[in-house]
């Protein structure tokens, strides 16, 4: 493991650990408003100060990371699974199913999905708890994010279809399910992994984008997305660098993933 990868792994470990044990590390509940101490700078009880409602920024960052860092991979898993199922079957079976899946993929890619999420979010029931709302947001991201990886996976299947090992398996009389799941799927593992790890930061940032519009995770739950919203007011950030902590957390997480998962130079894929 290179030095950069080691650093990236440690940083990711620290971030994940801190967010998982947020309840123990943070001294204040993330939703508690200390209205006499609004927008205060870092102090003994508040390592990152308080926000505009007097809530502990440190506690909100840790809990926000927990939500985003748990749910972004979950949404990525959902979208990659959907993409694998559709891409694999389309590439392998061909014919009308391939045409249907390719058409659906093109349609999904051409949709302004960001606005689609906003629309779907507006159609959902109103009286949902914040915890359900956050699940809905990431669920939508997962359900709508399959098209691009499905296309990549389909292409990979098409290129593997004429490979020698598949030809031999076919000649040996392997059934279609066996060909798909025993022979093809293991060979697609690197592609699937890559698609999964690409989707994680993408969803993390998508939730942040929705948060910027006020449509992501609802109050009082924190997420990296709604914490990043504060940065939209750049004149407020100028004199208060501790407000950049959520941005630093996102950059560390996304950068860490890239360092950790980038193919090693000289290594074949």
């Amino acid at each position: 493991m290179t030095k950069a990868r080691r650093i990236a792994a440690i940083a990711l470990l620290l971030l994940t650990g801190a967010s998982l044990f947020a309840g123990w590390i943070a001294r204040h509940p993330y939703q508690k408003q200390y209205r006499e101490a609004i927008a205060s700078p870092p102090a003994a009880g508040f390592p990152l100060g308080t926000d505009e409602l007097g809530r502990d920024r440190f506690s909100r960052l840790l809990h926000g990371m927990r939500i985003s860092l748990l749910l972004a991979p979950a949404a990525a898993l959902l979208s990659t699974t959907l993409a694998a199922l559709l891409g694999l079957t389309a590439g392998f079976l061909g014919g009308w199913w391939d045409r249907a899946v390719t058409g659906a993929t093109d349609l999904f890619l051409s949709l302004p999905w960001f606005f689609l999420i906003i629309t779907v979010r507006a159609l959902l029931p109103l009286n949902v708890a914040p915890e359900t709302s956050v699940l809905i947001t990431f669920g939508l991201l997962g359900l709508l994010g399959w098209a691009s990886p499905a296309r990549v996976i389909r292409s990979a299947v098409r290129s593997l279809e004429r490979s020698d090992f598949l030809l031999r398996a076919r000649a040996a009389g392997s059934s279609n399910p066996r060909l798909l799941f025993i022979h093809l799927l293991p060979n697609l593992a690197p592609v699937l992994m890559a698609q999964f790890w690409i989707a994680v930061p993408l969803f993390l940032l998508s939730e942040a984008d929705l948060g910027l519009l006020g449509l992501g995770v609802v109050e009082p739950l924190p997420s990296l997305g709604n914490l990043l919203r504060e940065l939209a007011n750049f004149s407020a950030v100028a004199g208060n660098p501790w407000m950049l902590a959520p941005a630093a957390a996102v950059m560390t997480f996304v950068g860490g993933l890239h360092f950790l998962l980038a193919p090693r130079s000289g290594a074949g894929t």
């Binding site: 408003q33 505009e52 109050e219």
Partner: peptide, 17 residues
């Protein structure tokens, strides 16, 4: 309330408490 209006979102959070 309307999304993207920070003032109203803050008010709503205070009403919640």
């Amino acid at each position: 309330t309307n999304a993207g209006n920070r003032t109203r979102e803050r008010m709503a959070a205070m009403l919640q408490q």
